[in-house]
Design a protein around this nucleic acid. Structure first.
Lengths: 126, 126
DNA sequence: CTTGCCTCTGACGTCAACGTCAGGTTCTAG
DNA sequence: CTAGAACCTGACGTTGACGTCAGAGGCAAG
């Protein structure tokens, strides 16, 4: 498929795909006229890249990780690298969970008419 | 306390604290000579700001949320706003969990000598 | 009183992941 | 064959959360 179709199917912009190639995250084959062509599994690859970006990884880190994911590289170092990033993500989940719980506490307070919030309510709806 | 002490105790830079004030996330009292002074609870406030930044909220969003957290504003809209952001964070946790699980699967594969990885291992250690 | 650290206000620099525009080529439908 | 959509390569623009530097004033210790 060409770049436009991949962009639509993977839910990213054409510009983003060219950027991924520039960062060596995503390869493409070129036709005689120079147009990029992708295989079906490129959709999956792009979505994985998006997942890793979403986890806060930089394109440099993703570039280092992807060969491990492809199992084209499998050394003690690459396994350690994968485990490292897994731990970072896990820690991020823990942090976010704490943030969510803190917001929950705030929401709880704002909904309880027994709290000091009632003063505000009275002021607003008196 | 002055800005340097707050920065150290909250684990952020002095520049960041001035930036927070500029964004109206953190107020300060000024001495006659113009120096900023903070109360003890500013440490907590800064850490909350950091948590929200860590959850991907912009300073604009944080600025809109903080009055609700302080329970200085309590309207149906502010409660909805809080619930919205809570949901965004919750969704982020779900996404991150999927990313972590995908990495776990990759790690599992790279550790199993029964997989195609053994070919790579042989190539590397033959 | 002066040395040295802390603080102040601008204001420009940075970095990543693209957005966007220019100017030109290529593919496809009719 | 031709219009219009899709594609190409530069290359400059954008945004947020600060970093960093300049120039000047403030404060505690000796």
């Amino acid at each position: 498929m060409r770049i436009g179709e991949l962009a639509e199917r993977a839910g990213v912009s054409v510009r983003a795909l060219r950027y991924y190639e520039e960062q060596e995250l995503l390869a493409s084959e070129r036709s005689a006229s120079g147009q990029r062509h992708y295989r079906e599994d490129a959709v999956d690859r792009v979505q994985l890249i998006q997942m890793l970006y979403g986890a806060g990884l930089s394109s440099k880190t993703v570039a280092e990780l992807l060969p491990c994911v492809d199992a084209k590289v499998n050394t003690p170092e690459s396994r350690a690298r994968l485990a490292d990033e897994r731990e970072r993500i896990n820690q991020q989940i823990i942090d976010l969970t704490r943030t969510r719980d803190r917001l929950d506490a705030v929401i709880e307070l704002s909904q309880s008419p027994a709290s000091g919030c009632t003063i505000v309510e009275e002021a607003l709806y008196a």
